Amino acid sequence: MSDLRALTGRPHAMRMLACALVGRLPEAMIALAVLLVARSHGGSYGTAGALAAAFALGATVGGPVSGRIADRVGQPLVLVATALGRGAAVAAIALLAASTLPVAAVATAAAGALTPPLEPALRALWPDIAAGDEHALHAAYELDAGAQELIFVLGPLLVAGVVALASPEAALLVTAAVGLGGTVGFAAGRPSRVWQGGRHAPVAWSAAARAPEVGLLLAVGALAGAATGLVNVTTTAFAERTLGDRNLAGWLLAAWAVGALSGGLAAAARRWTLAPDRRLTRMLLVFGAAFVPALLVRSGLPMALALALAGAALAPTLACVFVLTGARALPGTVTETFAWLTSSFLVGSAGGAAAGGALSGSGSGVRGFAGAALAVVAAAGLWQARHVPAAVLSPRE
């Protein structure tokens, strides 16, 4: 039996994954919907970008806080409370954007800070769902890493559909409803209700991020995030500069997402024999090398195939990071530790997007892919270097 079949045969596994994906759709909807609301009321692209940045900043700061609380009081209370709070903040954006954009910016930051910690919560649950089966656990992380790319394909499409039928404000309200429904479905699941993360003595604030090798994994996560940020901006620049139509960027990024999902499914269907700490270095190097075709092609279909190839290496790489993060988290801090990882990825993605803008200022627009490759190769070097001091200092026979 493949690892993927072992996972899907576990009670609640697919239900929890599906609810988490639905509950996380607002992560790919709010920024776009806010941008459209701001523009519809005369706001500049600079204003719209500032609102999107406020949302991302709020999510980066709020994630570890909500994760820490979930480790103490359990998942359902935190998940439902933050989902209700985010829904109220999103509704406030829809109501206030027409009259005062600064107040809307505060509401947008609050919506980010109140993002339900579904991503770290699901990853904290996978060991219990896998019920001690290490291979099923690895498959869970791989499927999780690949499937989450669907959020960033379906979310913007849902926003576009609602805007076409109604208005940007309606898209925000639909966003709140979708997020609340998915989150409540997740929180009502038995794995979430019975999970206990706080049976250990409380640890100091930020201790979760300072656990052995966790800080290093956060750095790897930030560099992987930088690669994805570079891909998003570079793909848009390529579509505009080389293909002559920036709207084609959406199709190219969809190819990247399909590649990631395919890579996650393929990885989940096989049984790994190499330990995750050794596999991570190799996967990062493969991920970096997978960007080479994207540097060489200059037309639409070949670029879509090249991005699908690079995306296919993303999910198995992130899955290694997830496995190692869960294994190295301090007792009673699993959700918080995964929330720190999510925040590091968000910070890296923002930095990668900024770097992508600088690298894509001229030419065919593909130089950002070189930056993405360098980021993940640097992550491989950083992870591998953790062994160097021990090797140097070990006594010789």
Rank of each mutant, 00 (worst) to 15 (best):
358 A>L: 13
10 R>C: 13
297 V>W: 11
285 L>Y: 12
348 G>V: 05
53 A>L: 07
46 G>F: 08
369 F>V: 00
87 G>C: 05
13 A>E: 12
107 A>P: 03
178 V>H: 03
230 L>I: 09
170 A>T: 06
46 G>L: 05
48 A>K: 08
9 G>A: 14
387 H>K: 12
199 R>D: 14
180 L>D: 10
319 A>Y: 12
85 G>P: 01
46 G>D: 12
360 S>F: 06
347 V>I: 15
384 Q>F: 13
158 L>D: 01
183 T>G: 00
274 L>S: 09
334 V>M: 07
77 L>V: 15
343 S>R: 09
257 A>H: 09
156 P>V: 04
136 A>R: 11
341 L>P: 10
98 A>F: 10
157 L>I: 02
177 A>D: 08
89 A>D: 01
221 G>L: 05
1 M>K: 10
153 V>S: 02
369 F>I: 06
86 R>V: 08
227 A>E: 08
264 G>H: 12
23 G>I: 10
369 F>D: 07
164 A>L: 06
52 A>H: 04
363 G>R: 12
268 A>M: 15
126 W>F: 08
369 F>L: 09
182 G>Q: 02
79 L>H: 04
100 T>F: 13
376 V>E: 08
117 P>G: 04
38 A>G: 05
392 V>Y: 07
159 V>A: 01
34 V>W: 01
84 L>N: 07
322 F>E: 09
276 P>D: 13
63 G>W: 07
156 P>H: 03
110 A>S: 08
103 V>P: 08
236 T>D: 01
61 V>M: 13
367 R>V: 12
70 A>Y: 06
369 F>N: 03
119 E>Q: 05
18 A>Q: 05
84 L>D: 07
186 F>R: 00
42 G>P: 10
214 V>W: 08
247 N>Y: 01
184 V>Y: 02
103 V>R: 05
351 G>F: 03
5 R>M: 15
97 A>G: 13
190 R>L: 15
256 W>E: 05
263 G>K: 11
372 A>D: 09
111 A>Y: 00
150 L>G: 00
320 C>Y: 08
100 T>N: 15
201 A>E: 11
381 G>C: 13
194 V>N: 10
282 R>K: 13
302 P>Q: 13
392 V>C: 02
201 A>K: 01
266 A>V: 14
239 A>N: 06
